[in-house]
Design a protein around this nucleic acid. Structure first.
Lengths: 255, 255
DNA sequence: CGGCCTATTGAAGCTCGTCAATTCGTGTGG
DNA sequence: CCACACGAATTGACGAGCTTCAATAGGCCG
């Protein structure tokens, strides 16, 4: 384990801090993956993890690394990405605190991570050894069921995104994505608007929907002119969700 | 169960035959999902299934149906599809004999199938009740592990396809898909060529990669002119795999 | 203030989708 | 057995949508 940490720190320039583990006991009880587990098991989970802090721009793991740990994000934001041979990147998932990533690790002791986990800001995650979790799952069937349910959700999300990118126009996909982000993580402001406090660049949004940062910028500008949203550097506020819905459903072709 | 069969038969016009179950015992032992299970369990699986035959063009299940069964295809070919609000279709998977589909059913008693399973030719599948399988999994942890492994493979496939459709051109995706089909199900002919005996229309290929049948037709014609493949009605033979690889990797832009 | 990352916008061009017309191939029924 | 019908496939023309490149402006931090 220590070897892995050092290797990653070296490879990516990430600074690794080891933090007191008592801090995170409440978090563990809220994680979907650990729902319904016995107090004994939860205690074991509270003891047998490692805390990893990774600074912005560094990786928790990279595509192709041997996958030996499952992570739960405690603070920060992480994006799960794949890079193509010619350097293009796609964003598969955004991870918020309390969410699980690297769960492939539990299944196959000898496989590699199929994607990379990049910290979008300084982030801290709890890491469990996959062999330890496999042992735990033998005594706690709920753990397996929870894990399968996470995988099911993940499959359905990827299927939906594949369908979207295969059938819908950039305009629709972007509107859809903004609505989804607003619903998941947006915060309602005193003035009634919903802001997405995620700091996503135009580039990030482009990689989530399979387009270029230029197309994203053009669309956001035009929507701002129409009063649907208000944009800022690395931020978007949704002013008129209904307008975005009609774009997402392609109800307003040609005006 | 009988009610479900009748309902589906009615809804889709599918003709349902109930066949002797002894026929399929050897198949069950070869299915990846059932690998490593005890002989006792395999016997139980051999007894507690239902055999469903569905004729070409009918559905084993449709998007939104309550999902109560897991299927293993015994003969025929099935495609797993999703349909968009405006009638466009995408093909998520092709199922060949021995492969499992509808596996989401096992996890959530009360959920719906997220996609449809359409018989591309007259097909027969074994169906297990999801409650029965959940019970079985409590005594056979291997079943859970196998299922999770299938799900892992499925996730990685969908991630790869998302990356492709988000970053690659139609040309590359089509070449990639032909190579994949040739590797998975192609048969080497006496003359050394590899034919894909799947009967896939241009439309099917288009729905697999997110394009139109016209683009597929144009590309296949041009590749045939260049001697890379030989095409026929609902069939393709790969003559020069290496040429397709260089197209898939975009090594020959502009000639 | 200067440097760097992010964002905007225009212009040009290419890929791809769309529509329409036609041909090809397969199975059916007279 | 041939003619016909129907689905599958081909091909051309056109244009919309999107990417690409380049130039410029904006915002934030040291």
């Amino acid at each position: 384990m220590q070897a892995l940490l050092c290797q990653l720190a070296f490879a990516e320039g990430g600074r690794i801090k080891i933090v007191s583990s008592a801090t995170f006991a409440p978090l563990i009880r809220q994680v979907a993956l650990f729902r319904g587990l016995s107090p004994t098991t939860l205690d074991q989970l509270g003891v047998n993890h490692v805390i990893r802090s990774v600074e912005e721009g560094s990786f928790f793991f990279q595509q192709g690394d041997a996958c030996r740990h499952l992570y739960v994000l405690a603070q920060g934001r992480v994006k799960i990405t794949q890079i193509t041979a010619d350097g293009q990147q796609v964003v598969l998932r955004l991870i918020m605190p309390g969410q699980t990533f690297g769960s492939i690790a539990v299944l196959r002791p000898e496989s590699d991570y199929p994607a990379s986990a990049l910290a979008m800001e300084d982030s801290t995650a709890l890491a469990w050894d996959s062999a330890f979790l496999r042992g735990l799952a033998q005594r706690e069937p709920s753990l397996n069921l929870n894990l399968m349910d996470l995988m099911r959700i993940h499959i359905e999300e990827m299927q939906a995104r594949f369908r979207e990118v295969a059938t819908e126009k950039v305009e629709q996909r972007l509107a859809q994505t903004l609505l989804r982000l607003a619903a998941q993580t947006g915060k309602r402001q005193p003035d009634g608007h919903v802001t997405i406090d995620l700091r996503l660049t135009r580039q990030d949004l482009a990689e989530m929907i399979g387009t270029t940062l230029y197309s994203v910028s053009r669309l956001l500008s035009s929507w701002e002119r129409r009063g649907l949203i208000s944009t800022g550097r690395e931020s978007v506020a949704v002013l008129n969700p209904h307008g975005l819905v009609s774009i997402a459903e392609d109800l307003d072709r040609k005006e």
